[in-house]
Design a protein around this nucleic acid. Structure first.
Lengths: 225, 225
DNA sequence: TGATGTGAAGCGGTTCACAGCC
DNA sequence: GGCTGTGAACCGCTTCACATCA
């Protein structure tokens, strides 16, 4: 138990561990060692132990971890005991797909509102979630107790919408617009850039094309989680 | 110019630089210094110079970088001169949204095929792209000269589909299924885990909830690109 | 014995600071 | 003078290796 700053890389892995443990529990297992867990899901056993040790001594030496209690602990650590209330801004295809994805995948997050500027869409429902006017964001966010905003809007409007979101007191933002947003210190921003991701793959392919393998990065093996 | 191994973090940033440069060019600028670029898009000037220096001496001391030629160089480095041929496997909402996203955003990638197992969808068109039976993957991939596969399938089938994709000789895979896939050494895999991303935000919110701020990680300021 | 928890080593990426060049 | 290119310092994450304990 160390109680230092926990990096985002660590919390990402905790989420992965939690899923793996669910998988094992579904398979009827009751305990698991860091080594077995690592083997099964190609992770690193030392890293698993270190990650968990940040939050307490969950294991039993000579035995491993009790899956049931470790799941409870991780759920607690990640704050997933109660469902987080999420909204998605931008009710285009990406927004709609994300809404559907988060609604249908698991019980951790609840999509309580969609927002858009398009008057055609406002008032309609997508996957049973109402689309509101982004003009009313602050009021709706307060009423619906929204904790997380997912931005699925065009690059041009992303920053101004982020400002609206922050103005409404939202502290967690996930951004799918391909721009580096500027946010306040106390707001947690996570950007998923679907464009750079593909560009990066293109670089790898270009490397394979290049006659001399100079810039190749042969480590294909998956990269970080 | 160093010609060492280039990390994925670097190539991701190159893609971001390229977009920023396009933005500047559209704004009528002709040259830019690393400092100005960093200021405008909240990046780090030393890092910009280091990243670029990996590939050549593109700048002019005392002046900065010529935007036009730097764009050409970056486009070349990232292998974005010719459009990359992409397919999307899984023609559900996420797959359809991604298809639409990549079709409408820029000219770098061309979605040439969709795949699914659902007989209802096969043969139909989504955003003008035909949906094929995933059984025919190898043949279609060869015929359509597919270079990149985007996996938008359920977690359960992700690994087996990845195996099919690799079997067909595809060397670049982008995975949206929330599982750690196992891939060959020479295949470049990029996983975007929409679940862990949200879980990670939840951890941050839980930290704000926690009475003692022990596990809080106050660095909200955007994180890595 | 067997697996955890952890100090220490190792590694890679970022930042600094300045020499070198226009 | 100004800005690039870069060695060196710094920092944080990962991996190792082992003391520790059921």
């Amino acid at each position: 138990m160390k109680s230092e700053k926990i990096s985002e890389l660590t919390t990402n892995r905790l989420s992965v561990y939690l899923r793996c443990l669910k998988d094992l529990a579904d398979g009827g297992h009751e305990t698991v060692s860091s080594e077995a867990l690592a083997k099964a899901y190609n992770l690193n056993s030392a890293q698993i132990r270190k990650d968990l040790a940040n939050f307490g001594e969950f294991g039993v030496r000579g035995v491993g971890y009790c899956i049931k209690s470790l799941r409870e602990n991780l759920t607690d650590i990640l704050g997933l005991n109660s469902r987080r209330r999420v909204c998605i801004i931008g009710a285009g295809r990406l927004g709609a797909a994300l809404a559907n994805y988060y609604i249908s995948s698991g019980k951790n997050f609840e999509v309580v509102a969609l927002f858009d500027v398009d008057q055609q869409k406002i008032g309609k429902k997508i996957s049973d979630v109402e689309v509101f006017d982004v003009k009313d964001f602050a009021a709706v966010a307060k009423r619906a107790k929204i904790e997380v905003a997912v931005l699925a809007v065009p690059a041009e409007s992303a920053q101004s919408i982020a400002d609206v979101v922050m103005g409404a007191g939202i502290k967690a933002v996930m951004n799918f617009a391909p721009v580096p947003l500027k946010v306040c210190e106390d707001v947690k921003l996570k950007t998923v850039d679907l464009t750079t991701s593909l560009d990066s793959l293109s670089y790898y392919l270009a490397g394979a094309d290049r006659s001399n393998g100079k810039h190749m990065k042969p480590n294909g093996g998956g990269g970080r989680i």
